[in-house]
Write a protein that binds this DNA or RNA. Sequence first.
DNA 1: CACAAGTTTCAATAATTATTGAAACTTTTG
DNA 2: CAAAAGTTTCAATAATTATTGAAACTTGTG
Lengths: 177, 177
Amino acid sequence: MPDQPTPTNPALEQAKAQFIQLWGASSANWGISRSLAQMHALLLVSPAALSTEELMAQLQISRGNASMTVRELMDWGLVYKELKPGERREYFVAEKDMLQVTRCIIRERKRRELDAMKRSLAQLAALPGDPADPEYREFHRVLGDIQQLTDSADSVLSGVMKAEKNWLIDKFLRMFL
Amino acid sequence: MPDQPTPTNPALEQAKAQFIQLWGASSANWGISRSLAQMHALLLVSPAALSTEELMAQLQISRGNASMTVRELMDWGLVYKELKPGERREYFVAEKDMLQVTRCIIRERKRRELDAMKRSLAQLAALPGDPADPEYREFHRVLGDIQQLTDSADSVLSGVMKAEKNWLIDKFLRMFL
DNA sequence: CACAAGTTTCAATAATTATTGAAACTTTTG
DNA sequence: CAAAAGTTTCAATAATTATTGAAACTTGTG
């Protein structure tokens, strides 16, 4: 059973820790748990696959938390299990291609949030009412405007998901700069 | 002091309540408080300006909460104060143009999150190290890739903020469909 | 200028959400 | 198949975040 073969460059370790910190701090803005964000950051900057033990140690979290969090990352498609031959223990690697990472996140959030929202809005908009009533008209106008917005968002996100590596950035830069 | 002049259509009121509910429920996904989302929804679907009292009553929240939440909405630029002549009380109206609303939200979130993130990433990337060390190389590659992503996001968001009413939707639809 | 009407603040508290840890479960191995 | 190694689950608890409500403050009024 070989120990960490890392030369443990202290400055680098500190920079990584800062990065994990930074990623963890912005978790609150995106409605995900701190552990999830931190574990993702850790796996992103680790060249080698990490075991549950290592995740627990590096992030200072419990086994239970590590187990649930790594599974959630796999659900998002952001992390893969890696079985080493002759090893009982499971190891985990992050998807490293950031375009792919972006696609995963967009796909999941679109499915969980945007699609659900669109369904609910459609249901609300189907409600009949007196078109002479200003309250009713206002309500329907707002609903319609929001639906336009969600539809646009849907188009954009679907487009991004299908996009090729450079196509996307090229188009965007051409479009906005 | 005139009472509510509303004919209070019960079906409509229920639909509005559902909308407020829906909006409030998705607050968790975006890192904002439920009160903030609900109050925004309420003001969006109200044709008339509402007083603090009315906000409190409709959302069933305390005066303190109402006061802080309405202020936060004004900080975002999503709600305006409306002073009625001869009235002491303050009234509040939402920005109703959804493109404008989108711009406000993008502007603020970009400022608070993206810009801050870019600064931190740049700082981390400036860290010197041994280019032969694979750990160091991996770390720098990830940082670089993320910076590319944040830069693209920046371009896109800046573009959206400047966009004209139909220009945006047209372009997007043309681009992605 | 004293009072009334309205607004803001913020420490205390409630509600929510994340995390732990131990027990149950699963899989591998001698 | 018993023990060992590893993983998952979930009720209990900790940590965090949102909300309340009462006191302080501000502004307009007779």
